[in-house]
Design a protein around this nucleic acid. Structure first.
Lengths: 359, 359
DNA sequence: GACATATGCGATAGAAATTGTCGCATAGGG
DNA sequence: CCCTATGCGACAATTTCTATCGCATATGTC
């Protein structure tokens, strides 16, 4: 259906193209264009590309943008969708990242280890945002490993710490709004279902910060116009709506300081460092020698075959947790207060079992 | 110093350029070229680029490649070095990744959380390989946050699990060789300083797998022509040299199976799942409700104010460690064997303190 | 329902960027 | 000291790119 009837006379008066000092404009404009493509569910129309490119200094006609978008979609496999009279462009969210600086096989391997390490540490909705990178790593390793004795997948293993908890399910849309609000200092209207409550309650929050702890992400925020921050687990939000209003931030609020002062989340208290003295059984000592508690840790073998380990460490809740976890493999020698504390805790724990010998 | 004397007559007989069906070849060739640039300490000469591009189907003269490499180095800031008569091209290893599919602010935020989570979990030499991505995330967040009330850095916090151990220092070159050998099934000649030994010993290893555990990476490998795999902590290698020889892999070796069978690294034993019954103090129960042990976990409040929690879990060493870490906040009700075990462990731990009341 | 409007897209020609070619300079290697 | 591989400036022939036009189509408005 060629409808070229051709205009008889056409102004050849062509708009003089910008004479940029540095060249390669076409390639650069195209790369810029590709980088503008948003990830689903966000999309962008051709005209929006045109405008953004104009802002970036690439003065071309819409037709050129159209052509480029169409041509490169075949090469890079991003998608389009006709809505109304415009075409909306986007990356499918499960597509691998494509780096101009490509990933080395070694970096891909580490990225794969990182992916597995993070499984227990971040909600799936959050990790999903990194999926393009993990995908890229997998693809790099796959393409690398043609004639291999074994697949790279059979060569990697990560041993997680602690039992594998179930991860709370975070709503992706809610998460997205919360992150955006946090970064852009906007208020949000939320429905939050508190612990033990069965109905979500509406409120307006001023996002102040995000805390990630053992696989749960919390939003620290003030509600309405109160000035006391509270924390809200991300997976308890049922609906989140960005508001136009700018969020109000308590005068001089600082997340670090806030967490330390309120002792929220068992953050390393930073009450100061203590000189920890431990007697450690041989089998447990080995891993401490492998990974010292501090750079200046000293280790001395005792007659008993145990090891006396001394190190300067932060006095935190996490430290107590770790010591208790080692069970009979460790004895705290000093500081005396910690020793008493641990001993007390062990006795309390043991005593819990005593009254109930019957059951 | 213009030395153009100009040849009087020049064959305009120009090599017909390939007529590829899909176009945009120039842009694609350049992107391909950029993706070929290795990261320092690897480098590539202009001729190597030319050859590789030819292999990839981009038939152009070396001069074109030269020109492109030079032109784009100004835009993308990769570096060159004259060695002999060739120019060697490379990315500085601290430069940010540049993605064709650019990172969203939310993904950048999660990548930043991931970076902090990983600090304790992977050696610095390994994390350094991911630095370009972290850098990219930081740059994305920086550029995003012009007129903000507070920097994004003051809005994020990660609470690590356990005390912050010192991380063993892995030699980057050694690590790189080991990873490459592992991925390419090559033997390596290594100098390894075993635990407690003060001198490194030479040997030839057949890399079989990598295990990451609590921040230490181990290489599982057979030595010389033995068939028993051993594990070697990456930070104990002092020198690693890739050999040309292909590595030998024990018949039917499988890392997963090997780790499970030998119980190396306290890997989740997978001896089967058990029905865990715990009585948990209210304050500890809250986080278990937030992050259940398993999807079907049941929680019941007892008259005592404690919570009876039941869940189907893997019976692992890590589970014991976790239970002990909770101290007096938890009492194991069942299975009976585990209950006995934990009680025994608590008593043993407590008894360690008794004989030494004097000190 | 008719019209105005915005967008998509084929075609085309003129303009500009691209690239093959040549000549020379330079730096190692034998 | 010559030989060879590489880098690079210059240039012109093309190729590629892109502004422009015309028309088709879908949507919103009156």
């Amino acid at each position: 259906m060629s409808r070229a009837k051709l205009s008889p006379e056409r102004k050849p008066a062509r708009k003089k193209r910008r004479s940029k000092q540095d060249d390669n404009t076409a390639t650069m404009r195209r790369i810029a264009m590709l980088q503008m493509i948003p990830t689903w569910p966000k999309t962008m129309t051709t005209s929006e590309f045109h405008e953004k490119l104009k802002l970036a200094g690439y003065m071309v006609e819409p037709r050129t943008v159209q052509r480029d978008l169409l041509e490169f979609s075949q090469t890079f496999h991003y998608l389009s969708e006709c809505r109304g009279r415009s075409i909306h462009w986007y990356w499918a969210n499960d597509r691998a990242a494509i780096s101009i600086r490509s990933i080395s096989p070694e970096a891909a391997l580490v990225l794969n280890l990182a992916e597995r390490e993070l499984q227990g540490l971040l909600p799936s909705a959050a990790l999903k945002l990194l999926e393009p990178y993990f995908q890229q790593a997998r693809e790099a390793l796959d393409s690398n490993g043609a004639t291999r004795l074994a697949s790279w997948k059979d060569k990697l293993q990560v041993i997680p710490r602690g039992p594998q908890f179930e991860k709370p399910r975070v709503d992706a849309a809610a998460q997205s709004s919360i992150f955006e609000a946090l970064l852009c200092d906007q208020k949000i209207r939320v429905f939050y279902r508190g612990r033990g409550q069965d109905r979500a309650k509406e409120s307006v929050l001023n996002p102040l910060g995000i805390v990630s702890r053992h696989g749960v992400i919390y939003l620290v925020a003030t509600a309405w116009s109160y000035s006391d921050p509270f924390h809200y687990a991300l997976h308890r939000f049922t609906r989140v709506e960005l508001m136009d209003e700018r969020c109000s931030r308590p005068e001089g609020f600082n997340l670090d300081r806030y967490l330390k002062e309120t002792r929220a989340f068992d953050l390393p208290t930073g009450q100061g460092r203590i000189r920890l003295k431990l007697d450690v059984a041989a089998e447990a000592a080995l891993s401490l020698i492998e990974r010292p508690l501090s750079a200046e840790q000293s280790v001395r073998e005792l007659q008993s075959g145990e090891f006396r380990i001394e190190a300067q460490v932060e006095d935190t809740m996490e430290l107590r947790w770790w010591i208790l976890g080692l069970g009979s493999n460790v004895k705290v020698i000093g500081p005396a207060s910690l020793r008493r504390e641990i001993l007390g805790c062990l006795e309390a724990a043991r005593n819990r079992y005593l009254p109930s010998v019957k059951d």
